[in-house]
């Protein structure tokens, strides 16, 4: 069987790069500036119009799923190293990647079902 580690590491790398490039601006806008009124938030209709565009859908799918796998991979190793849980290797791996898969599935379904 092909070991899957290099593939998971690729997801980790891609997700880390996407998060590094795009999360600061998204978090500042969606998480802080718009809700707190520091910047005038675009109206619901404008945002909804954006989200319906096929390019935006693909963008959102990538920007949500890959960073989830980045988290799964990195957090798994943090648990091994910091809490010395190497003996729970399989359990931790299954839990982390399953959580990322679940989040990705929800994201894919949501993006797919946008009217």
């Amino acid at each position: 069987m092909r070991p899957i580690t290099p593939f998971l590491w690729t997801l980790f790398g891609a997700g880390g790069t996407i998060a590094a490039l795009l999360f600061p601006v998204h978090l500042v806008l969606s998480g802080l500036a718009f809700p707190l009124g520091a910047l005038e938030a675009p109206s619901y209709d404008v945002l909804y119009g954006l989200v319906r565009h096929p390019v935006t859908r693909l963008y959102l799918l990538v920007v949500i799923t890959l960073p989830l796998f980045h988290w799964a991979h990195r957090f798994r190793y943090t648990l091994y190293d910091v809490l010395q849980l190497k003996h729970l290797y399989r359990l931790i791996a299954v839990l982390c990647y399953s959580a990322a898969l679940l989040g990705s599935a929800v994201a894919a379904y949501t993006v797919w079902r946008i009217p």
Partner: peptide
């Protein structure tokens, strides 16, 4: 080397 290993993985 990890990068080499990752690229190698996708060769198939």
């Amino acid at each position: 080397l990890k990068l080499v290993g990752a690229v190698d993985w996708f060769r198939f």
